[in-house]
Measured scan of single mutants.
Amino acid sequence: MATGGRRGAAAAPLLVAVAALLLGAAGHLYPGEVCPGMDIRNNLTRLHELENCSVIEGHLQILLMFKTRPEDFRDLSFPKLIMITDYLLLFRVYGLESLKDLFPNLTVIRGSRLFFNYALVIFEMVHLKELGLYNLMNITRGSVRIEKNNELCYLATIDWSRILDSVEDNYIVLNKDDNEECGDICPGTAKGKTNCPATVINGQFVERCWTHSHCQKVCPTICKSHGCTAEGLCCHSECLGNCSQPDDPTKCVACRNFYLDGRCVETCPPPYYHFQDWRCVNFSFCQDLHHKCKNSRRQGCHQYVIHNNKCIPECPSGYTMNSSNLLCTPCLGPCPKVCHLLEGEKTIDSVTSAQELRGCTVINGSLIINIRGGNNLAAELEANLGLIEEISGYLKIRRSYALVSLSFFRKLRLIRGETLEIGNYSFYALDNQNLRQLWDWSKHNLTITQGKLFFHYNPKLCLSEIHKMEEVSGTKGRQERNDIALKTNGDQASCENELLKFSYIRTSFDKI
């Protein structure tokens, strides 16, 4: 039985969820670079991206490699990797027998973001014989899940209580170790020597080791999670996991709180800001991140802002960003909400898709409305799209047979046209069989910064309504002859009103 693990408890099935942008060198404390989270699957090609990484700022997932063999891993080693800020997950990587050479110096898994409450997941690794993470000293947050690894031993010899604050939620089941077939031998045991430290858990006094050649490092209890030197002297209180010299914040392997210019500090002093819960960055760093993602459509890219001495992905609820200094300031009234469309555009074809934009005031991208039916549609669209004030790209209304009016965009005031449909149009209306009105132009103002209007096959939309939009939106004169079809717009509506004058002759039985 794995020490510190839980057996036999019912657990939810383990679901495996399925960018080499360097964020800056980590400095003297770390020998390499800070790398983003990685999802490495199918083959070993991307694994080489770990070569210079000291910190993975995010998670590391290595999974679904069915053609790899043990010899493929023999020359692979990433000794610079010290810390993973989120979680480490391995799933069905064939041929991998140990992690001792792959990650010989991995010391800390912070667990800032977890995989279903777990910071370390080893699942269905069919050839893994031992973990071998002999320098792993601290899992700051989260638990361990090690399950269905039929060859995995050296679990009962690990004292997880020396690595985690609590072992109650560890789930370590259905491994070879369960069948008591392992016969784990710690260093020196074969020669009758006791080389590794022994600890007591559940009444068992057991030597602690990761492999037959690597003991588990056990520091004096007084050192807590700070770690200790090879001689057993406690590291500085700002260290986490390990250090090369005692009581020196510049000799830590990793930091308990924050890293700044080669030393570990309790908090980031001005003019620095907390970033990702582990390091200090200056304003320029946060500003660069903001600008890199301002026009990016890459998933996970955030326009970072500053709030409460932190550089964070977005302002919290009730705050909006001051564009001059990136500071989050309290909103006066309802907060603006910028919604970034991942692929640059979004099609609204149902109430469900409209709900995804609920509360958005600025759309960074283009909207395509293609709704053919739905219950209580006008009210639903207004509830979900009615706060949109600005669209950076274009607005396209296409084959939306259920629409009679666009009044559900009740606050839309600006279409920038930074991206144009077919390279020309910022407003595009095609084949809307029941569209009769755009907006009530006596109450609604709309500016279209650039781009043209396109109207074709809107049989109940009168040309007068379209011409009014040209005047109000500032697009009059931009359109070419064929942009607004004269014969297919309003051709099934009563669009022309003329005053009919009647004269009559009164007659009676005795007068003409």
Rank of each mutant, 00 (worst) to 15 (best):
K310Y: 09
P187R: 09
C264M: 00
N135Q: 13
T45F: 09
T199Q: 07
S112V: 13
K100T: 09
R41V: 02
D288K: 07
H28Q: 06
F115A: 14
H302G: 14
C252K: 01
G241L: 01
L332I: 09
D277K: 03
G183A: 11
F73R: 01
I122T: 05
P246Y: 05
C315V: 01
L155T: 07
C268L: 01
H274L: 15
G188V: 05
H59F: 09
V200M: 06
H48V: 13
E314R: 04
G241E: 02
F275H: 08
F275N: 08
V265W: 12
T107K: 06
E151V: 10
T68W: 03
M321S: 11
D165E: 11
Y304Q: 09
C219H: 01
I84G: 00
F103M: 13
G142H: 00
I122P: 03
Y319L: 04
L260M: 03
I82K: 04
N42Q: 05
P187I: 10
R145L: 04
Y154M: 06
C234I: 02
P271R: 13
N149R: 00
T140M: 06
S317E: 04
S166L: 12
G58P: 00
H226G: 14
F283S: 10
S284A: 03
F283E: 07
D288A: 14
C280H: 01
L128Y: 00
P271C: 12
C209G: 01
T211Q: 01
T68I: 04
T320K: 07
K310R: 11
H59I: 04
F275G: 02
K224R: 06
K191D: 15
D277P: 05
S237N: 14
G32L: 13
E130W: 05
L29R: 03
T85M: 09
T107V: 11
D184I: 05
E231P: 14
V55N: 07
S161A: 04
L114G: 00
K67W: 10
L128F: 08
R263W: 15
E168G: 03
T189L: 09
Y87A: 02
L332A: 03
N52R: 13
L233Y: 15
K191N: 15
R263F: 07
V93I: 04
D178W: 13
N170Q: 06
G262M: 06
S237L: 06
G318Q: 11
